[in-house]
């Protein structure tokens, strides 16, 4: 392990040697990872690597078949996402974060509604909810004229921002973000990355799940690479350049084979299109890194 130099801060969330089996399927095997307060742990892995299972285990949806789960140094055993939430572990899911037909303020407070009055007249404090929603979104640079607007009318980045703002507002100590940038354009992804850094600066431990190393690298403090249900490696940022991260994530050998294939294709006439494609991909990559770096510098 390469992160021993910052031993001074204890991890806020840590799992040790957890495994999860679904019948005969081994979804996770001997996985250990942690996040410290004020740090971003990036969880990288290709499709099918076991990211979703790991997130759901951390979020309290699944119980690990084997292994231990520590929160603030104490062993915990979550029976439901609500359990985890009560400890301050908030999870923002990629596609399930928001309910499109519900208004922004209803979404914002779903499951944690502020109330006023005494039973049986205890009621949802609607005006407070609307006001807080408007304020919190304004802090993120999104102007909500009408909090009654259905969330379905917001863009993908705005929805993710609402979800992150919600988790931060409710005092999350650990924020688990499931591919928040996956479906977003370059600019919107930059917006979301900026909020990850904001959350980190507030002392929140962030677990940022992604399969895009270019999004992970600018914000991450250390990188856990998950492959085929096990931990492939856990690297501090200082120890691993971006190129190496990309290569490790995809599986070095596979990527090499792919680049050979592309190179040989570009040598032929029909390969011109492939060449153009490769150039376009490179250009896209450059803008993505720029945007991400821009987001970093903005802080």
């Amino acid at each position: 392990m390469t992160h021993n130099e910052s031993m001074t801060i204890a991890p806020i969330l840590e799992v040790k040697s957890i495994s999860k089996f679904f019948g005969s399927v081994i979804a996770l095997h001997d996985v250990s990872m942690f996040v410290r307060p004020g740090e971003v742990t990036c969880l990288l892995g290709d499709n099918g690597a076991g990211k979703s299972t790991l997130i759901k285990t951390l979020a309290g949806v699944h119980k690990p078949t084997e292994g231990e789960y520590f929160f603030e140094g104490k062993p915990v055993d979550f029976n439901s996402p609500r359990d985890a939430l009560e400890h301050g572990i908030a999870t923002v899911y990629q596609d399930l974060a928001m309910i499109p037909l519900m208004s922004i303020w209803r979404n914002f407070f779903l499951g944690s509604e502020p109330t006023k009055g005494v039973p049986p007249l205890r009621r949802f404090d609607v005006s407070h909810a609307k006001q807080v929603t408007r304020e919190e979104m304004a802090k993120m640079g999104i102007d909500i004229r009408n909090p009654d607007q259905p969330v379905g009318t917001l863009s993908g980045g705005e929805r993710q921002s609402v979800a992150i703002a919600r988790a931060v507002y409710f005092g999350a100590k650990v924020l688990i973000l499931d591919e928040p940038t996956a479906a977003l354009g370059v600019k919107q992804a930059g917006v979301v990355l900026r909020y990850i850094l904001q959350a980190k600066q507030r002392g929140i431990g962030v677990i940022f799940i992604t399969h895009n190393p270019h999004h992970a690298y600018p914000v991450g403090d250390h990188f856990v690479i998950l492959r085929r249900g096990t931990i492939y490696g856990d690297y501090a940022k200082a120890d691993v350049p971006l190129e190496q991260l990309v290569s490790m994530m995809a599986g070095g050998a596979d990527l090499e084979a792919l680049s050979h294939e592309l190179a040989s294709a570009s040598r032929t006439d029909t390969g011109r299109a492939a060449e153009e494609l490769a150039e376009a991909a490179q250009a896209y990559h450059a803008t993505a890194v720029e945007a991400a770096e821009g987001a970093t510098q903005d802080e």
Binding site: T91, L96, M102, R106, G111
Partner: peptide, 13 residues
């Protein structure tokens, strides 16, 4: 919330 998306609602508690 539950009618809109059962899973999302469960996930927020």
């Amino acid at each position: 919330g539950v009618g809109g998306d059962t899973n999302a609602s469960r996930n927020v508690g």
